[in-house]
Design a protein around this nucleic acid. Sequence first.
RNA 1: GGGGGUGUGGUGAAAUUGGUAGACGCACUGGACUCAAAAUCCAGCGGGCGCAAGUCCAUGUCGGUUCGACUCCGACCACCCCCACCA
Length: 749
Amino acid sequence: MQERYNAGAIESKWQKAWEERRTFKVAEIPEKEKFYLLEMFPYPSGRIHMGHVRNYSIGDVVARFKRLQGYNVLHPMGWDAFGMPAENAAIQHGTHPAKWTYENIDNMRAQLKKMGFSYDWDRELATCDVDYYKWEQLIFLRMFERGLAYKKSSFVNWCPDCQTVLANEQVEDGCCWRCDNEVEQKELEQWFFKITDYAEELLDWTWRLPGWPEPVLIMQRNWIGRSTGCEIDFPLEHSLKKIRVFTTRQDTLYGATFMSLAPEHPMALELATDAQRPAVEEFIARVRRQEKARRTSEDFEKEGVFTGSWCINPVTRKRMPIYLANFVLMDYGTGAVMAVPTHDQRDFEFARKYDLPLSVVIQPEGPALDPATMTEAWTGPGTMVNSAFFDGLGNEAAKEAIADYLQKDGIGKKTVNYRLRDWGVSRQRYWGTPIPIIYCDVCGTVPVPEQDLPVVLPRDVELTGEGGSPLAKSSSFVNVTCPQCGEAARRETDTFDTFVESSWYFARYACPDFPSAPVDRQAVEYWLPVDQYIGGIEHAVMHLLYARFFTKVLRDLGMMNVDEPFANLLTQGMVCMETLSCPQHGWLYPEEAADGRCVKCGTVVAQGRNEKMSKSKKNVVDPDNLINRFGADTARLFSLFAAPPEKDLEWNEQGVEGCYRFLNRVWRAVYDNLAVIADSGPASGSEGEGRTLRRLTHRTIRKVTEDIDGRFHFNTAIAAVMELVNAIYAFEDKARQPAVLREALETVV
RNA sequence: GGGGGUGUGGUGAAAUUGGUAGACGCACUGGACUCAAAAUCCAGCGGGCGCAAGUCCAUGUCGGUUCGACUCCGACCACCCCCACCA
C-alpha cells in the first residue's frame, strides 16, 4: 500500500476503471427519472484552459450528485469544431484545418479524461463530422421550404487591402486586424434565418424561464427590443409615392418638420434633384466607406445632405424637406425617420446644424419652451400644444388617441418593431458547413435535393486568406448540373456561421447515431429539455438565443416536441489572474518572473490587476501542469472552492496548494485510522465526544446536500467538509467508538 | 447615452435571504517536532480601551424603515461588464 497521497495513482486507477466499465454510459430507461446535465461544448483550440476546468468541474459535481440521488443522468461531451482558428492555422502553418482540428480534439479529449469528468463518451460528437452537419443541411432545406431561410443583399465588413471579408471580431476600431487599414462596407447576397418571425415567442418565454438568471433574461429582452408605435405614410410633394416611417412617438407628429432617410434607403437616389445629385452621391459614397468606424467613435458628428425633394406632413399639411442622415439605420424600422427636432436630441442637433425649422408640440410644466432659445430637445412628459384637436391632452394619452386617429384615417397603423435582426448565417469561409444550394441560370436558386445530401466539404481547397469564399476556387465543388433542368450550374460557396452548429447539438446528444433524421423524436422526448445548462455569461445573448430559436424551429418543422431547450441555466464567471509585465520584455508568463523581477533582465516586474486569463496577456495557467503537480482533484477542488460559480475566480497559487494540503489531510485521516476502523460495523449509538462528531457528520451531509442541490454553493459545501475533517482530527475517543469515526470518514470520502 | 452588476478583515470569501458579522481557506505571527530545513501538528489573527471578565467602534458614504439592517427603501461615491445614434 502507498505511504502517502498519490493523486496520479489514484486518479489513473479509477479513470481506467470508469473507461473499461463504461460507468457513465446511459440509455433511455422510461421508468427512471432522467436528468440531462450539459456544459457548453468547447471549441477545439488545442488545449483545455482554466475556464474549461472550472465549467466542467461544476457540471461534473452536479452530474455525480444527481446520479447519487438516483437519476438517470445524461452527461455528454463533444466539439464545436468548425471555425476560423483552424483556417488561420492553415493559412499560417500550412496544416489542413481538418488535421489541425482532429488532432486538437484528440489532445483535449485526453486532457478531459485526465480531469476525471464523468461523461458518456459513447455520445461524443464533432460538428465538423459529415454525420453531424449533413443533418444541419437537412434542417436548412426544410427552413428554406418554409421561408425561414432566405437570401437578401446585405453589407459585410470588407478589407480592400486584404481583399477579404472580415468577421465583426476581426474589425478593431474600424480597421482590419491584420493590416490595420480602414474597413469598408461591401454589399453581398447573404443567407438569413428569419429569427424575427419568432421575436414575440422568444420574448414571451423569457417570462416563463424561472430557472434562468434574471440578468440573462433581461439581456435577451433588451436584445429582442420590442417597441410599440406606428407606421406613418408621408406623401411626396410632387408624386403619388409615399415615404413610410416607424415611430414610437406619434404624439410628436405635429412637430415633425423634416424627414431623415438612411443613406442606403432605396429611394435615396431617386429623391435627389438634378441640382443636389452630386452632393447626394458623394454623401452616400462617403458614409458607406465610414459606416463601421463611425459606430465606435465617441465624438461622432451628425451629418446629412438635402435631397432637394419635399414631402408633406400628413396632419399639418406642411412641406418637409427630405434629408439623408448618417445616423439613420436602414435595418431598423423602415430606414426613414420623421424628424421632430423639439423632442428628439438627434433631430435637434441636426436641425441646428442645417438651420431647419422647429415646432414645439409638447409643453412641460414650468416655463414654456421656445424654439428660438431651446438648447436641447425636450424628451420628457408634457401637455400637447400646436396639435389641433389633441391640444390639452397629456402626451401619453395623445399617443393612443393619435394612433387611433391615424389608423381610422388610413394615414398609418399601429405596429410593433424589434431591434432583433434576422440572423445572417453566410460566412465567406472554408471551415464550415456548406450551404446546400445550387444556382442555375435557368432555374435560379435551387435547393439541393434531400437524397443528394450531404454536400460534403471538399478537402482539396487552397487557403490563402485573400479573396472571397475559398470554396469558390474549387472547380470540382462549384461546378454541378442543375438538379431541376440538368444544365450546368454552380454551388453556393459560402458556409454557415458556426453558431448554427451549436444551436441544436444538445438535441443530437440524445441520439448521436440516429441514422434517419437530425433527431430521434423518442429519444428527444425522453431526454429534453436540458435540466441544467452551464456555461460562460458571454453567451448570454447570441448562443442562448439562437439555441432557443432553433428549438422552436425544429418543433415547428415537426422534428421534435420541445418549446425551450434549457430548463435551468447557470452562468459561470471568468477565471482571472494578475498580469505581469516587464518594461523591456512586455507581458510575462508567471514562470518568467522570480522574486518580483524579470528573469531575463532583472527589472522589477509591474503587477497589473486581475484580468481574464488570456494567452495574449500571458497570465495563463496550463491545467496540465496543475494535474501533473497536484492531480486533477486539486484542480477541481480549487476551481470550486475559491469563489461561488457565478463570480469571477481569482487564480491564486497558494490557494491551490491549500487545496492540495486539504486532500493530503483527508488521505491521511483515512490511512492513519485504517487499523482502528477496519472491523467496525455501522454506527449505532454514541456518547460524549462521539455524539458530537456524529451530529456533525450528519449536519455536514445536510449542509452539502442543500448547498449543491439548486443553490450551487460549492465553496460553502467544501468548507463544511473541511470542518468535518478538522473535527475528525480532533476526535480522541477512537478506540471506544470506532464506528463513529468510520462513519465520519466514509462521509468525507 | 441605455441596461446590468459589485463594494464586508492583510486577502479569496461566509452569514441558507431581516436575527450572535467575518464560517472555511490563504497570508502572517508565535510555539512543538528537527542538528537544520521542508512537511506536519498546536495556538493566535478586524480596530480601540483594558491585566482580565469585558466593553465600545466597524459590512463604500449619508439618511430612512424596524425591537433588530451586510441584508429592505432613498440619495450619493467608486469600480466592473454588456449594448450602444433602434427613431
